[in-house]
Nucleic acid binder design. Sequence first.
DNA 1: TTGAAAGCGCTAACAG
DNA 2: CTGTTAGCGCTTTCAA
Lengths: 344, 344
Amino acid sequence: MAKKIAAKDRNVTIDDIAKAANVGTATVSRALNHPELLRKDTREAVLRVVHELGYIRSGAAMALASNQTFTVGAIIPTFNNAIFAASIAGFENELSRENYTLLVTVSNFDPEQEIKQLRKLLERGIDAILLIGLDHSEQVFDLLERSRCCVVSIFGSSKQSRIPCIGFDNPKASEAIVAHLVSLEHQHIGMISGITDGNDRARDRKNGVISALQTHGLNHDPSLFIEKHYSHSQGRQALRTLLDQPTPPSAVICGNDVLAMGALFEANSQNIQVPQQLSITGFDNLPITEHLRPSLTTIDVPSEKMGIEAAKSIIENLRSGTTIQSKLLKADLLIRETTGKAAP
Amino acid sequence: MAKKIAAKDRNVTIDDIAKAANVGTATVSRALNHPELLRKDTREAVLRVVHELGYIRSGAAMALASNQTFTVGAIIPTFNNAIFAASIAGFENELSRENYTLLVTVSNFDPEQEIKQLRKLLERGIDAILLIGLDHSEQVFDLLERSRCCVVSIFGSSKQSRIPCIGFDNPKASEAIVAHLVSLEHQHIGMISGITDGNDRARDRKNGVISALQTHGLNHDPSLFIEKHYSHSQGRQALRTLLDQPTPPSAVICGNDVLAMGALFEANSQNIQVPQQLSITGFDNLPITEHLRPSLTTIDVPSEKMGIEAAKSIIENLRSGTTIQSKLLKADLLIRETTGKAAP
DNA sequence: TTGAAAGCGCTAACAG
DNA sequence: CTGTTAGCGCTTTCAA
């Protein structure tokens, strides 16, 4: 009796299907994975039983036997920035269409966390993994190599990355911003950058600005370059600091849109006219930035597209073993209302 | 030769460890899962070898043998709304701390998609699952029941849900909004609601408004109630429609902050003074809403907290089999600057 | 405290 | 075209 309950309680397995359909387990497996190998009636008979019994395959058993999980991992710095959400959305959507599932973890911009999360993902079993940017600890590269797991990185811009990278040219984008501001006759340019330590994107953006400044024969005043964590309030605070300088900047370049919005909100609060008294630029083109008043001049980062392309590359690699090619997408300057002629 | 390469190419398994450490596989397993059962020196010896060989356990094999995956699934409507991102962030964070991993999929507000995704998650193998809201197709409940998978839903407010639910009282929040507007002497109140079909949260919020209107003896004018998909532009468009009515509302209640921001942006564009000429309310309290000018009056939805609580309940259930208790968190009205006295 | 060995449910040779 | 069967790498009795 107890036994019977236990038996009923057990999940339906491939053996149950095989028995009920009067075929071997291999045939059931084929009906599900390689239907074209079966005679039409056998296939249909098996599939009918599968439906009748509400059979759900065991991913664990499949993974163990076939050595693939149809699962792809991702480690993102945070969920609290719409830019990563957009990439993950594109990534998930594309994976899902090909019947892959997404395992997501968050590193909180912490290298140690990233190692831990990677180890966990590898242990769980993944066929491929998505990483953000190019700055990763040696252990990460090590684990990746030893596990021979397919990897793709997005958001980065290095041409000589150790892992395939679908990104865009961060420094070039920075240069476009500087060129734009210079064309508006700004001479005194400041920057609210993200924390550059361990963050290649933030570093690339900042260095791009600095080198462009030099290119245009402008002075790079370190006291006008502030690094902040990405948040509205940090952006606000940074702008306050900048405005407190002996000679405040006439234009502020921000490391991303969140910081830029913070700066813009602060300017609003202080009744500083943007762009008449102060120009502000962002980076990312979050959906909301076009609706702000004034709307934000920013870089149109292809966040969703990077996710989609990354997924496509991964799937192709998994299917046919083609090595993944790095790709540089374009990220154009979007001139909107927060930038204007420098006050005389 | 080829054989040797193949051998080297193979992943390190528990057998390799057992052999290298001169113990049985059971001992290795114990060293990793129940270290307290081993003598100190045996344990340490095994662990040393584990590190030396860079051993990574096979999640598939573990799952197959132990019938648990240490993986939890989640199906969210979309990544394109910071509110879900916040919940997922809290959820992931909490799971991660207990060494669980998160499998995320997106339904795009489509019941068919949800079924497909659930089936996929179940097949991949999950120990528990997080769902948004209480509206789910019969098949979802069916699958859940048959798989005996631990479930929790967040964001919903029904007291008599079929699945445990960690949410808040949506109708009550709506009532608070109406009461607030009434106290400001608004008599002509409109609403830009989310699409209510298949969305219990949107429905609860809308119905909450309608019934509160009645409670306060106000007329519910259906032409002032519009349903829109959640996006800034839909919010803008809806406000335009509302303002085109013969007698436009003096206050507009929005189904969420995204719609509210859209309405606010539209009002800004049309140079309509908020709140002097028009009051607007949101729902969710997205981080950005406090920085807008005017800042948005909205409902402080405990999005992250719901994620955290859900994760805690799940983990407790998985560990000790305690059934999950539904919980109603509070979601208070946050009176900010977009609401004011009705124009006379 | 440890080891041997029987599965877990599926895939993929191999054989027919 | 289909069935038999040997694993996949781990957990977990059961015995020692």
